[in-house]
Design a protein around this nucleic acid. Sequence first.
RNA 1: GGUCUCAUAGUUCAACGGAUAGAACACCAGUUUGCGGAACUGGCGAUCCAGGUUCGAUUCCUGGUGAGACCA
Length: 562
Amino acid sequence: MKSLIIEYLKKNWNADQAEKIQFSPVPKEQEGDLALSFFELAKEIKKAPIQIAQEVEGVLQKNNTIIEKTNISGPYLNLFFQNDVFFEQVLESSVDFVTQKNKTIVIEFSGPNTNKPLHLGHMRNHALGIAMSNLYEALGANVKRVNIINDRGVHICKSMLAYQKFGNGDTPEKQQLKTDHFVGQYYVRYEQEFKKDPNLKDEIQTMLVAWEEGDKDVRAIWKKMNDWTLSGHQKTYERQGIAFEKSYYESDWYRKGSEIAQQGLKKDIFQKRSDGAITIDLIDEGLDEKVVLRADGTSIYLTQDLAVASQREKDFHPDQMIYVVADEQNYHFKVLFACLDRLQLLAREKLYHLGYGLVHLPEGRMKSREGTVVDADNLMDELSALALVEIQSRNPDLEESVQKQIAEQIMNAAWKFYLLSTSPRKSITFDPKKSIAFEGATGPYLQYAGVRIRSILAKSNINLGKTKPNSSVLGDAEKPLGAKILAFEDTLQQALESKNPTYLVTYLLELAQLWSSYYSANSILKADTEELKIARLYFAQKMYSILEKGLGILGIEIPEKM
RNA sequence: GGUCUCAUAGUUCAACGGAUAGAACACCAGUUUGCGGAACUGGCGAUCCAGGUUCGAUUCCUGGUGAGACCA
């Protein structure tokens, strides 16, 4: 609808100025289908907004095939569309918009440690990573989802040492535990034992050195335990609908930064400090002087990340590289991006850190050492079990395997929607009761709206491909929903540009609310005339396809029944 | 101590610098012959404080207050 108006104004008014008109929805209390405003344009051509509004109104009034009538309210020009054209646009609107064609986007998310299972913090990370990568993909980009595995270091040795000392050759199979949970036990065990015997710290150091030197036994334990953890993580990823293109392991990369450090030194981008450490001076960016390589030649996270980023550039030649990492690492990424840019490994414009606030519990921050971590698998099990109870009471005739599958779909909808409905920048206080709610502004509410539409479409017995709808029979009842449907494209674009899926979440919620409200007041299958029924069925189908597409981007499926 | 982020109904969250700040939960009052009530309708109720920029500020700037993160 917007493009029709702009095209018309370009031809019949002023091509340059037409592009600068701003569009907005009409507030509840005002009348009209779409509002135009001219604040930006007014500034530029130094005319009063009202004057421009009147001018544009005069032009648009001549086009009575699109515009039924207009009214000026203050600086706004409100348009009333001709029903048939408006609904034709709605019914023919696409759900596929390609704005990112030929663009390659690398998105890093998850970033697990191999000493314990995934937790609630990862779930927020995953929700964002899933949504952002799907969003880019939906808009036509070539998306590479990548993972970085933190599989070495002191914290990894902790679970290894505990296993070596207290494990007695136990295995996940014997314990009947998910393999990553089995490993996690030993991490907790270490912390308990350490409280009794602080000398364990020395043993950790010894083990770390042994690992570095390639000690056979230590490496064997390391390999075994990492395999357990990673295969456990893999199951969780699959359950959440995540598949990575490639994983980068810290153990492969932690030494490879020194080469880059030497290069930087040659190019005079890095400096050698009197104590032998290699540093970069970022004081002019307000970031201090940072050590890139320690005096003893060991690298730090920064160096390693430089090497990994450089490898990803070789692997994928991305147009953009997005890191989904908690905002406690804001500073790290500023430094990393400055280094990559100065070394000409990756231009700053290509790099983006999608930071997000921590997930707090009502009683404070999660601490794995203190056992206050909300485990991802356990939370998912809990959600799934609650959903299953509901399904069993509502759909007792379904096979149990189907019921379970639907429970999983509802479980995924619940946590993804919950964690995406807060803007990434803000921290979230995790309220267990709300996170498992299925009523109100929740993922399951949206799924439910979808299920009902599908149920109607299935009962209609009309082959929608064959009949052509008469869009002119649709009217005021469908207007608000129609306008919302037309806003889908802008919403996706806005979410993409701001790298904030919350815009899509809000949109889908409003869409479903409009639908539910419309649906309860207007019968589709029992519409007054056959013609109206057919038009409404098409309308419902359009509504469904938007819902399905939008939820799909959030990683949420609409179940068959629920 | 320095840097960054956040502050909106009782609670959890929305709001490209634009019309009377929008939802959900909770609370109160309703929807029986329904295409699926995990739903719908109505009510109650909010921009931390003080300045500034602007025709217009929840949004931008400055200074406070409070919370969190990071760097020494």
